[in-house]
């Protein structure tokens, strides 16, 4: 027994007043003030809107949400915990524990939508569908294979950023689409809270990936970059087929694919890489963009607007004790 104690590193208490990486505290602060629960959103206001969807549209929506639930479940139970094992700083570990918990909140939120809007039998059927759906299973497997490969912390981060910043978007498209047509607008509010969280998760894991890359030599960096682009291609292949299966019926497949390209490029940027998909394949329907960031296009900026007039900031939240004026 005595021998075993030698193998164990000295347990150390986390000191938040001694940081190795300022980003850890910055992200911790943002994530904790952004904390939310699904009860905050009045989902029951969508009951009438739900009843106006056709049965096919309802089935599609439930299926899409079970697919999203699966990704959040993976990230909660496997993704974030496995990244914790690779944490360089104790603060990074703490941030990842917050991320893990929020994934559980996200997964739980979809069930709140279901219990508010849907019949139990329909929901059970959709969960069965997701367990049997080949594309959903294939993408989960690709990600989980990387999470299991304990040998490469940086490959795990690549897989994790792709889950956070790319794989969710075939699903997120649908509530944004409904919202752009004034359908299920409260559910869309809830989804936007999830989207904001995922943006910080993808950012932070991508940031830690970039820090890890700095320690490697040129050859190792190239190998990881090749791996990242290869994995993205494989995931994209699956996503394209999943998209066709889900959205062909509504005639939205091409539009969703543009949204996927746009998000894939953003996932790569989170890892510090350049874009892959050409811009002409990333032209997302403006209605979807407006649903994603409501209000932000009402102010035309100077360079892309007519040029003759511009708006001086609309911001209200200018209060910050650091400003001297």
């Amino acid at each position: 027994m005595k021998d075993m104690t030698q193998a164990r590193a000295v347990p150390k208490a986390i000191n938040w007043n001694r940081l190795q990486d300022d980003k850890d505290l910055e992200i911790w602060n943002r994530l904790t003030v952004n904390f939310w629960l699904p009860e905050k959103v009045p989902l029951s206001n969508d009951i009438q809107s739900w009843s106006q969807l056709t049965p096919d549209e309802q089935t599609l929506t439930i299926r899409v949400f079970t697919g999203l639930t699966l990704l959040d479940t993976i990230q909660n139970a496997v993704g974030a915990p496995t990244l914790m094992q690779d944490a360089i700083t104790p603060h990074e570990e703490a941030v990842l524990s917050n991320i893990a918990f929020m994934e559980a909140v996200h997964a739980r939120s979809y069930s709140s939508v279901f219990s508010t809007l849907c019949q139990t039998t329909e929901v059970d059927e959709a969960f069965r569908w997701s367990a049997e759906n080949e594309h959903l299973q294939a993408k989960s497997r690709l990600i989980l294979d990387e999470y299991d490969a304990i040998a490469s912390p940086l490959r795990k981060k690549i897989a994790s950023v792709f889950l956070e910043s790319f794989l969710f978007y075939s699903g997120f498209y649908l509530p944004m689409h409904w919202s752009s047509r004034a359908r299920l607008t409260n559910t869309a509010d809830l989804i936007r809270l999830i989207i904001r969280d995922e943006a910080i998760h993808g950012y932070y894991i991508g940031y830690k990936f970039q820090r890890g890359m700095e320690r490697l030599d040129e050859a190792e960096r190239k190998e990881l970059k090749d791996f990242a682009f290869g994995l993205l291609f494989d995931l994209y292949d699956i996503e394209a087929r999943y998209t066709e299966q889900l959205y062909d019926g509504l005639g939205l497949t091409e539009d969703v694919k543009n949204f996927l390209h746009y998000n894939a490029n953003k996932a790569l940027q989170n890892l510090g890489f350049e874009a892959l998909f050409p811009e002409e394949t990333c032209r997302v329907n403006p209605a979807i963009m407006a649903a994603l960031s409501p209000g932000s296009d009402e102010n035309h900026d100077f360079f892309s607007g007519s040029g003759s007039s511009y708006v001086i900031g609309k911001a209200e939240a200018t209060e910050d004790e650091d400003w001297d004026f």
């Binding site: 904001r196 900031g313 609309k314 911001a315």
Partner: peptide
Amino acid sequence: NRNFGTTFALAGDVIAKK
């Protein structure tokens, strides 16, 4: 990042106003 919804590129608006 547009994923931040209504606060997209908000730093620009805050500075513009101040």
